[in-house]
């Protein structure tokens, strides 16, 4: 049986609850997974079932909902199924399984979570703000995983006096810090008026980037390994390349 969810945690937990007795279940939020000959069911979030599943799972491992939250943020298409297998094992063993690395379900979940948290770490470095005419900072990005709101605490702590917008242009939403509060909002397209100096600072940064390189020691493969090309498009240092 294939269970389709709407991508939310509530819908996932409802599906998990329904699927648990099923044995050979597959949970997904991606329509592409539809295969012929398989029975399918569309699962709407059911608050009561989801809550029962949550309580049960938490009684085995008090951290499992944090794991689930990170798994569902993954950009991998099989994220719901990875979460399904991981939580299924937890429900079977009735004790925390997060360190049972010899289990395939645990390794898969660990790696999936690690890809999400690693991208958060990377973006702490790779985000590039532009200064707008109002003094607020704006950064467009298109992360692999759904993490813009998780970037906010880091930047808020260091740029307390500057309102900023982290715009996930792929998912068309933005994490906003208005100088006081933070919130998540849908955002299709942003019309940005840059500050008078912005271009000048970008040019200085480009100059710095070129000057600090040692051309005699070119190692492009290593460079791309550390900073995959998909992150380059929002970085001013690559504008002139």
């Amino acid at each position: 049986m294939i269970y389709f969810t709407d991508g939310t945690a509530e819908s996932f937990l409802t599906a998990f609850w329904l699927a648990f007795k099923d044995g050979e279940s597959y949970i997904t939020s991606t329509q592409k997974q539809l295969s012929l000959g398989q029975k399918t069911v569309f699962v709407a979030a059911d608050g009561e079932k989801a809550e029962r599943a949550r309580k049960r799972l938490l009684s085995f491992d008090k951290n499992c909902m944090d794991d689930l939250s990170l798994l569902l943020r993954s950009g991998q298409e099989n994220r719901e199924q990875i979460a399904n297998r991981y939580l299924h094992l937890l429900a079977e063993k009735k004790e925390p399984v997060s360190k049972m690395f010899a289990e395939e379900a645990v390794t898969e979940a660990t790696e999936c979570i690690r890809r999400v948290t690693f991208e958060i770490h990377r973006l702490h470095g790779f985000v590039r703000f532009m200064e707008t005419a109002s003094g607020a900072l704006y950064s467009p990005l298109s992360p692999d995983n759904d993490v813009v709101d998780l970037l906010v605490p880091h930047f808020r702590a260091r740029l307390t006096e500057y309102p900023f917008v982290l715009h996930d242009v792929k998912r068309k939403k933005a994490a906003v810090y208005d100088g006081k509060n933070t919130f998540l909002a849908p955002l299709e397209q942003a019309n940005i008026i840059l500050s008078a100096d912005e271009k000048g600072w970008q040019e200085l940064w480009q100059r710095y980037y070129k000057s600090v390189n040692i051309p005699e020691r070119e190692r492009l493969k290593q460079m791309r390994g550390y900073m995959p090309v998909r992150y380059w498009k929002f970085m001013p240092e690559f504008d002139s390349f």
């Binding site: 390189n213 070119e218 190692r219 493969k221």
Partner: peptide
């Protein structure tokens, strides 16, 4: 925290 990488891999 690494903010960028130059063509020399640093």
């Amino acid at each position: 925290c690494c903010h960028s990488f130059t063509p020399d891999g640093r």
